Amino acid sequence: MNFTLNQLRIFVAVVDKKSITKASEELHMTQPAVSIQISNLQSQFDIPLIEVIARKVYVTEFGMELYKLAVTTLEHVNSIHYKTHSFRGLLSGKLRVSVVSTGKYIMPYYLKDFLKENPKIDLMIDVTNKSKVIESLEKNEVDFCLVSVLPKHIDLEEEILLPNKLVLTASAETDIKVKSRLHKSVFSDLPLIFREEGSGTRETMQKYFEKAGIIPKVKLELTSSEAVKQAVIAGLGYSILPVLSLKNELKLKSIKIIPVQGLPLKSNWRLIWLRQKKFSTVAQSYLDFIRKQKPDIYKNYFSWTEAY
């Protein structure tokens, strides 16, 4: 047999994504190039690894066994690289982070200087909704998660990073008249744009409405904060959004904040991890960095939110 590490990497990506197209995007390769490498790997075996039916990838039983071995092999290869860097006095390894979708406005600022100081660290970051973030935490697939709403059923440790404020937003072109803070009953009439089920922002909104005894008028449900913002800008409805996600829109005056009783809703952005988590050297170094640098990061990048 004469398969290569590159072929194993490509095979693992195809199995993980269950798609040659998605794997090619992740690997920054063309789809034909991925298909050729998979074909070259398959030629080493007389038992099928995968089956493609109606453009969907199905992994055979033998393919799953090879996948497990390939993952282990690639981890050992990476360990060789990390050990080499370690003997040179360089911090290296993988840092795995899962971030709720709104957290994409936050996490890069809490990563960039650490990664700049430690260029041999490989970052694996997944930006998704809260449900999937918590799932990856429960499975111990990540070192840290960034959330604004804590799960109650997991034994956790946390590090609070910065405040989270949610406000009612509208298109800058809306003709709603605001002379003073509106009564919360206004939500009974406003067409609202919600995030999808599993979103932390949606969960916070729902708790507010339940406590206020309000049945909101939901006009749209969208799957990302960016989609919600664009719908608000277009005048399709109103939504409660985190202030820190609105920096550019407020600067460009494409969105305006409407003051309402009980708003802004306040919580905190937290870095969380399993209480029994055994940190790698990289993960512990990152946590030490965060604890030391978070006041400066907040001051440099997020103190503007205090105006709202």
Score class of each variant (00 low, 15 high):
residue 13 A to K: 06
residue 17 K to R: 14
residue 19 S to G: 01
residue 22 K to Q: 15
residue 23 A to I: 04
residue 23 A to Y: 02
residue 25 E to T: 11
residue 27 L to D: 07
residue 27 L to S: 07
residue 32 P to F: 11
residue 36 I to R: 12
residue 42 Q to T: 09
residue 47 I to Q: 11
residue 53 I to A: 08
residue 54 A to V: 13
residue 60 T to I: 05
residue 63 G to N: 00
residue 68 K to L: 08
residue 72 T to V: 09
residue 80 I to W: 01
residue 85 H to R: 11
residue 87 F to K: 14
residue 94 K to L: 04
residue 98 S to V: 05
residue 102 T to A: 14
residue 108 P to W: 00
residue 111 L to N: 05
residue 112 K to M: 03
residue 113 D to W: 08
residue 117 E to Q: 13
residue 118 N to T: 04
residue 118 N to K: 06
residue 119 P to E: 13
residue 122 D to C: 01
residue 123 L to P: 06
residue 123 L to G: 00
residue 124 M to I: 14
residue 124 M to S: 11
residue 124 M to G: 08
residue 124 M to L: 11
residue 125 I to P: 06
residue 127 V to H: 02
residue 129 N to V: 12
residue 130 K to E: 12
residue 130 K to A: 09
residue 132 K to N: 13
residue 133 V to G: 04
residue 135 E to S: 13
residue 141 E to T: 07
residue 145 C to T: 13
residue 146 L to W: 11
residue 147 V to P: 07
residue 149 V to K: 10
residue 149 V to C: 07
residue 149 V to W: 04
residue 154 I to R: 14
residue 159 E to R: 00
residue 160 I to F: 03
residue 160 I to L: 06
residue 161 L to H: 02
residue 162 L to E: 06
residue 166 L to E: 08
residue 170 A to Q: 09
residue 171 S to R: 01
residue 173 E to P: 00
residue 173 E to N: 15
residue 182 L to V: 05
residue 182 L to P: 04
residue 186 V to W: 07
residue 188 S to P: 06
residue 196 E to N: 13
residue 205 M to E: 12
residue 214 I to C: 08
residue 215 I to Q: 15
residue 224 S to I: 05
residue 226 E to S: 09
residue 227 A to K: 09
residue 229 K to R: 14
residue 231 A to P: 01
residue 235 G to S: 04
residue 245 S to C: 12
residue 252 L to M: 13
residue 253 K to D: 10
residue 256 K to S: 02
residue 256 K to N: 08
residue 272 I to L: 00
residue 273 W to F: 11
residue 279 F to S: 02
residue 281 T to G: 03
residue 285 S to P: 10
residue 285 S to F: 03
residue 289 F to M: 07
residue 291 R to N: 07
residue 294 K to V: 03
residue 294 K to C: 00
residue 298 Y to S: 04
residue 300 N to E: 14
residue 306 E to I: 08
residue 308 Y to A: 05
